[in-house]
């Protein structure tokens, strides 16, 4: 089966620095692919290129065979790619359900309508989406007063509004408590599984990654140094050295300390 997303030789330079260097990978339908690596390894740069925030210096990104590299975020979204942000981005002056309605209004191209009432449009669909993420009881709350974990769930509902084929999630569980993280990721995995959506996500919490990723890619200094299953990555010595840590690094000091 042909991949949903196919990235070839993706590179991005900032001056002389190669933030992302010749990265290639495929993402299959329904796959949960994790992108991990130390801070500054190029994960965000890579992500921003896939989402259109940043233009690649070279390389191609194909979504179902169509090149999307260099397109603006809103065009990529219209092609069926959703995203969630590392630092949640929601509309603070609206209610929870209006946040989701906004995505639906945009999806149905009614943004320039002046005669209808926005709060009445696509309300049922929006409530149904909130229901899937367990937020329907908070639908009428003011977005600005939500707890962080609820904002994350709202963002997920918003990202699902246009029935995406691919979801890009930037550190979906950042800033959450451990129990919350596991719950959120389980919820995400279930929804995506049910809808057959493919996911590429970055994450710092290895518990989350090891528990949910189907496959893991490791980025270090802009280069893809490993790409494999959970077990392959866990036992890859190079990955242990640059990222996971093998516990040997401070052996000497530890001994001295004891």
């Amino acid at each position: 089966m042909s991949p949903i997303l196919s990235v070839r030789n993706l590179s991005r330079n900032f001056g002389a620095i190669k933030a992302v260097d010749n990265v290639s990978f495929d993402l299959a339908k329904g796959e949960l692919l994790a992108l991990i690596g130390p801070n500054g390894a190029g994960k965000s740069t890579c992500f921003n290129m896939l989402m259109g925030q940043l233009k690649p210096s070279s390389g191609t990104v194909q979504l179902l065979g169509k090149n999307i590299a260099g397109l603006q975020p809103r065009k990529i979204w219209r092609m069926g790619v959703g995203r969630t942000f590392q630092i949640t981005a929601t509309y603070a002056s609206m209610t929870v359900v209006e946040n989701v309605q906004m995505a639906l209004i945009s999806h149905h191209r009614r943004l320039y309508s002046l005669t209808s009432f926005a709060h009445k449009l696509y309300r049922e669909e929006a409530l149904a989406l909130l229901d899937t993420v367990g937020m329907v009881d908070q639908a009428e709350r003011h977005c600005a007063v939500l707890a962080y974990g609820d904002l994350k769930r709202l963002e997920l509902a918003v990202a699902l509004a246009h029935d995406p084929i691919l979801l890009l999630m930037d550190e979906p569980t950042a800033g959450m408590a451990p129990q919350e993280r596991i719950a959120l990721m389980q919820l995400t995995a279930d929804i995506l599984d049910a809808r057959g959506i493919s996911v590429l996500f970055t994450e710092h919490d290895m518990d989350v990654v090891f528990a949910h990723a189907h496959r893991i890619m490791v980025l270090n200094r802009g280069e893809l140094i490993a790409n494999g299953t959970v077990d392959e990555i866990r036992n890859n010595p190079q990955v242990q050295e640059v990222y996971l840590g093998g516990g040997t690094l401070f052996k000497a000091q530890e001994d001295a300390h004891a």
Partner: peptide, 18 residues
């Protein structure tokens, strides 16, 4: 966040969660 690093340098530890 890196326990190895902390073990190498620290005398005392405070753990916070949430």
């Amino acid at each position: 966040q890196n326990l190895h690093f902390a073990q190498a340098v620290a005398d005392g530890v405070v753990i916070i969660e949430h």
